[in-house]
Design a protein around this nucleic acid. Structure first.
Lengths: 136, 136
DNA sequence: TCCTAAGATAGACCCAGTCTAAGTCAAGAA
DNA sequence: TTCTTGACTTAGACTGGGTCTATCTTAGGA
């Protein structure tokens, strides 16, 4: 995580205590927090941090390519710090738990030219849905 | 489309003018309207139809399996009447246009058992993103 | 240490969607 | 054909997630 802060600083990111706390909250594997959850956890360490700052910081991290935005349900977006390793998501239809997964092959390759309608196709996101062991 | 109304009636669906208009608005290929767009088009034919009724009717059509809910951006959900033919979506990153596409193979097959974390995986949704011919 | 533009803040605001209480009506019964 | 009733519709209040704005604070260079 200090790698992340180091990378950001070297890109001219002004380092504030708020930004540091948000970045720290997003550390770990299979982390997919909503903005409100990030805010709550950040506020444990820095009680006066505002919602707007959390949204701003998350938005910047997404723009910088350090964090992915994931919208697996119609509800709040989730933020995934695992941005440097290509992966897809497996979501429990009952409890909403999310796991990062790596399918075999490139999902982009499954779309033949005839099905591209002249689009310049760049990415493919796959969301697998099912019941997790706890909910099954 | 009258097939649809017939199917619904035979399932005990009470047929009202509002429901008929909503179902008619959703007819066609590559149709992916938001609830507000459905409401606007329905209101052209039935000016006093309410937003709540449109939401209720769309929700019922989704529950009955006649319409799919699609959330390709973080904004409003879209409703896709092409529910009886399995397909995925190709979205323009610039203008948001959506096309139904059929990739080769079954995306579910690409997720090995070792990557399923004990989940009972049921479906895979793929969203392809890129620039459409008009925006490229 | 000082300065200043970048960043943070509170809270108003917006949009998509849900809920509620009251009124309306489709369709089966008589 | 009319009656009846519970399913359906309505307006509008409300909620959750997110954005915007005006003002205040501060990181970090001079």
């Amino acid at each position: 995580m200090s790698d992340l802060l180091e990378r950001l600083r070297s890109r001219g990111w002004r380092l504030t205590s708020q930004r540091r706390v948000v970045a720290e909250v997003l550390d770990g594997d299979h982390v997919h927090l909503t903005a409100d959850e990030v805010h709550a956890r950040a506020a444990e360490r820095l009680p006066e941090i505002s919602r707007a700052t959390v949204y701003n910081t998350l938005g910047e991290l997404v723009t910088l390519g350090e964090v992915l935005e994931v919208a697996t349900d119609g509800r709040a977006k989730r933020y995934d710090p695992n941005a440097h390793q290509p992966h897809q998501h497996l979501v429990c239809s009952a409890c909403g738990t999310i796991r990062d997964v790596r399918p075999t092959g490139d999902p982009l390759a499954a779309l033949p030219a005839a099905e591209r309608f002249g689009f310049d196709v760049a990415t493919a996101e796959v969301t697998y849905r099912g019941l997790c062991p706890d909910c099954a």
